[in-house]
Design a binder for these strands. Structure first.
Lengths: 349, 349
DNA sequence: GTGAAAGCGCTAACAC
DNA sequence: GTGTTAGCGCTTTCAC
């Protein structure tokens, strides 16, 4: 007994009913020249009537392409990545590509395993926010794929397309704003230095603090994990300092959620007791009263640009790697105010 | 010239290096009996050394299975669905399945197109929150797939597995609570009646309002779209009534976001001017001050259960369709208070 | 126990 | 212009 028939109507069947050979039918359906238009139309007609859909697996065997693209992020339930996933899907699916999603949990080992699993699926491309830009063997692993786009990640040694956010500009504006209304003790709670987002924020923060002559206390600048818990812990510790800051900046939405939660538990009011700025605009920041000052970026654009880069790479595999930088900007909406003695005391308990 | 070689190490190569035939190698790697343990070990060793990974497309051609499962929802960027997607991925990926996501935009026509596209990918299974439970030809379309699980949707005529939330219980509790603290004019802003979630909420609301002897004003019970805009519009209109309600219930997170936005624009304070209950717990409801009363359900459980049903169905294709019902419960957290004359006037302007 | 060979549905070289 | 044919990598008879 042969293998099971899965697809209901095959190319063979279309060809038979149109009275042509499979190769002619194939030519027609792949828009190739050198087919009499009369024949072409007959094949098209039969194909439509029968509802013919080429079997992706079979085609894949011949062409090596699957029409599938994977998106690997740390957590698809994070609205940031979910938004990117949606916009990527919107860019890719009209062109016949399907999107596969996978969560790395920000764990390099798991990510490696994922990539190996994705590889055997022969995906046409990979959009990935790698967990650790410096992970061993990452460059080789990326070469498993015909086309790769890094999502807000950068690997200098690798010739890979990437879309990056210009985190520095927005953050510098934010710090400038806080300084301009009188803050000199500002704290940044950033994430892991294994990812450029956090690294850039840390570097920008240190640079601007120095440039503007603000307090350069090491303890006001924290790298850690990009989690809610870490955000909570960091805020708790920072506000317990002998001289706590008068303004707080959260490096991403998770850290902000933790920060927000901690401030509420401590009974700290925004912006009366403390000024707050979040990187990333989410429901939490947008619907807060007052709306929170944020460093914004267009996440849908990020997903869209990543998709465009990927499609371009698929079309011309040998072209030079591109590096697309998208802007971020600071938006002041009411969660920062001049520092007050009262506020500082309050935050201190 | 033959087709391009994609996979780096083939079964043929493993067999050659192990000094056996491909069929023997295949038997070993598929855990089939009747292979000398000595041979078995040699093949395993070579396979591991070479890092052999079977080509999914090729295997798929023979077996008809792809190890891929699709999740079709209206909007993957909605945290509700994103959470479900994550938990589904967590349940499926350890068992070797990959998750494909697709957005239907809640549009039956687009959904139909999607399903056709997914079909030719020979997905092993489909988890879907159909846009319209009553769409023409839906039952036939579902039969394209070997295994299907409906996500909080029900199609009585179809023998399909489904995971459902018991929206009625949680909502009835919410209404009971509001009534118990003195509300007699409660409004429900629900979504489309093409999906059971909204239908159940509408039916439950009408039933409870009658049972508890509350105001049965038709205008207090609105079906519409499940969008932010629709939530906004509904609230604006309802609060402009001659006798506006003293409590508002939002049917899902999108409607709630619209509601929240409208209330803020109208300067309505929760719960002083108006009591509010949201269906679904999100960042917005959880981090609000006070935290909002919600009808909660465990979304991760929903994704997990859907995956389990799917896997079970894949294992035994002929077993009876199951219908798993998951609980919802009301949680009072401070966004409802007894109605006040002042509040009502305020909401009225 | 093991190997040879067929064939899943498709595309592309080659012959006519 | 069109048909014949080989073969992608794999699983599964069937023969030994």
């Amino acid at each position: 007994m042969g293998p099971p028939t899965v697809t209901d109507v095959t190319l063979r069947e279309v060809a038979r009913q149109a009275g042509v050979s499979v190769s002619t039918a194939s030519r027609v359906l792949n828009d190739q020249p050198f087919v009499r238009s009369e024949v072409r139309e007959r094949v098209m007609l039969v194909s439509r009537e029968l509802g013919y859909r080429p079997d992706v697996a079979a085609r894949s065997m011949r062409t090596g392409t699957t029409g599938a693209i994977a998106l690997v992020v740390s957590d698809i339930s994070n609205p940031l990545f979910a938004t990117i996933a949606k916009s990527a899907d919107e860019a890719l699916s009209p062109r016949g590509y399907s999107l596969m999603v996978a969560n790395s949990s920000n764990d390099p080992a798991h990510e490696e395993e994922l990539m190996a699993a994705l590889r055997q699926r022969r995906l046409d491309g990979l959009v990935i926010a790698v967990a650790d830009e410096g992970a061993a063997g990452l460059r080789e692993r990326l070469e498993w794929f015909q086309a790769v786009v890094l999502l807000d990640r950068e690997i200098p040694s690798a010739r890979v397309d990437c879309v990056l956010s210009d985190h520095a500009t927005g953050l510098a504006e934010a710090i400038g704003h806080l300084a301009s209304i009188g803050h000199s003790r500002i704290a940044l709670i950033a994430g892991t230095t294994a990812q450029r987002g956090s690294r850039v924020r840390l570097a920008t923060f240190r640079r601007e603090v120095r440039r503007l002559g603000l307090d350069q206390d090491q303890e006001l600048c924290r790298a850690g994990e990009l989690t809610i818990d870490d955000g909570y812990r960091a805020v708790t510790e920072i506000l317990a300092m002998a001289r706590p800051p008068t303004a707080l900046i959260a490096g991403n939405n998770q850290l902000f959620a933790g920060m927000f939660s901690a401030l509420r538990d401590l009974g700290v009011s925004i912006p009366r007791d403390l000024s707050v700025v979040a990187c990333e605009d989410t429901e939490l920041t947008a619907f807060h009263n007052p709306p929170l000052d944020v460093v914004r970026r267009d996440l849908a654009e990020l997903g869209r640009e990543a998709s465009e880069l990927l499609l371009a790479r698929l079309e011309s595999p040998r072209r030079r790697a591109r590096r697309v930088v998208l802007s971020t900007r600071f938006e002041s909406r009411g969660s920062s105010a001049p520092p007050s003695r009262r506020g500082r005391r309050k935050a201190l308990r």
